[in-house]
Design a protein around this nucleic acid. Sequence first.
RNA 1: GCUCCCAUCGUUCAGCGGCCUAGGACUCCGCCCUUUCAAGGCGGCAACGCGGGUUCGAAUCCCGUUGGGAGUACCA
Length: 550
Amino acid sequence: MLDRAVIDALFPADLPEPEHWEQQYPARELPEGALVTRFGPSPTGFVHIGGIYVATIDQDLARRTGGRYLVRVEDTDQSREVEGALEQFERGFTYFHLAADEDTGRGGAYGPYQQSARERIYLTYVRHLLRQGKAYLDFATKEELAAITQRQQATKLPTGYYGSWAIWRDADPADVQAKLDAGAPYVVRFRAPDDTGARARFTDAIRGPLEAEANRNDVVILKSSDQSPRLPTYHFAHAVDDHLMRVNLVIRGDEWISSVPVHQQLFDALGFEPVTYAHIAPLMKQEGGSKRKLSKRKDPEASVDFYIEAGYPAEAVLYYLRGLANGRLAELPLEQALAEPIRLEECGVAGPLVDLVKLDDIAADHIATLSGADILAAVRTWAERFDPELRGVLDDEPELALRALAVERDGVENPRKDLKKWSDFRPVYGFFFPRLHAAVTGPDDERIAALGVDREVVQAVARDFAADYRQLDDGQEWFEQIREVAAKHGFARNAKEFKKNPDAYPGSIREASQIIRIALTGSTRSPDMHAITQALGRDEVLSRIEPLTK
RNA sequence: GCUCCCAUCGUUCAGCGGCCUAGGACUCCGCCCUUUCAAGGCGGCAACGCGGGUUCGAAUCCCGUUGGGAGUACCA
């Protein structure tokens, strides 16, 4: 073991003792059973939808029990940091209503909430462990480490830094001193307790009792001394931060299960009360015949920006996610499901595939419950960032927008489910606005041509329709106009008749009405035509028919 | 390789020893409604990976096997 003086010389002289931090961050005064949770995003990329999933659970549990929900930025790997990640986090959290009770922006008594700003705290505890001989200095180079791993693999031994492979574990203090004098960089490793064959046991809040081999690896706890700031590895930061922030429930992805044995040893060595763990099954993605974790790099839908850019309502996404976590919530109506508690013991243990088709369905259902005014407000907000032209049009003609949205929505028992996300507004309702409408160019327009009606007939229908056009209030009467024109030009009365004898007619009433629909909306799909003409007004209707008459 | 975790329709959630000839939702396919596309209504296809136990009785418990996932970093 190293002399205390040698150890202390490695740290700032004014570095506080553990008691200092213990007093600065006392136990929280919270009601019995209050859960303190934390979400720890790492700024090595965008927030993952799986992060939203976990953060939702963190927030729900804390709120529900009168506890606290923290967001702590886990930026101990400065080399992998991505520009703009923090801003992206904030966008994501804001969009999904997941703002923390305590974080860097909002502050809190247990900060800083960014690991890179907690260097001194970590150093205190590293020194503490060093002084007790529970940690040691390791000068092994990258090459030496690689060689060790290689030899272990060759002999089919477990890889790692342990036992006789741990070349600096029981090094002669004189050798250590010599390295130090030579200015060699070192890391600090945790001295794994020597309990070969022991089992590590713990109870996961989701999975129940779990066990594994006790850890015997001397994991790195403090990264290389040639870097500044000197930061800890995840394992050590987890122990120190969650203890000092008085977190009592750690919810994280199940890729951490295998690290629990190390974490237990670390908590124990540090003299910390153990925390409860809840390991969540990660969101998956179908690839070929198998599943794999949703990947930030390969899957666009892994990023929260995907949902924000497309304009999925946050409530719909949250509802979907909660349903994945607790099946019970998926059976409830959205509003109720959002208000009901998430229960850890009901969380699934196998990773669910994210199903965008299902999300679409949920979102369409949800938007169908909204009023035209609410939809307009949401679309305007979305368009401000993602479709400025649409935003401008909406601002200029809010009344028209409202009239458009009212079609088959206001006063209807089953509103039309044609909007899954805000970006659908333009393709579905854009035609209402003259500035966004892609008018037909004439009888040869390919959308019209696709109907298979002779161009002369199209022209004739359009001419006759326009010539006698009346802007009627009654939908039935209004449609009679199409019927009359269709009959006059020999269209079949219904699709069946036409199908029976296609050569006898230029088309059926179906084709006749589609001619008008395409002229009016530019598409074969649209809300009720009569309602559309009401919203558009007589002049606009006629001007949209007009190109077909030439 | 080693160590963990997991396993019900295509997807998702339910089922926690008999109520299961396995249920709901999404998808898909029919049919109805209808001037189109939708929406809506009705109906249908479709699963307990496999093999052993335990038990009067197993999707449910145990063991094995297969398959999938994760970890095995000075990444988190």
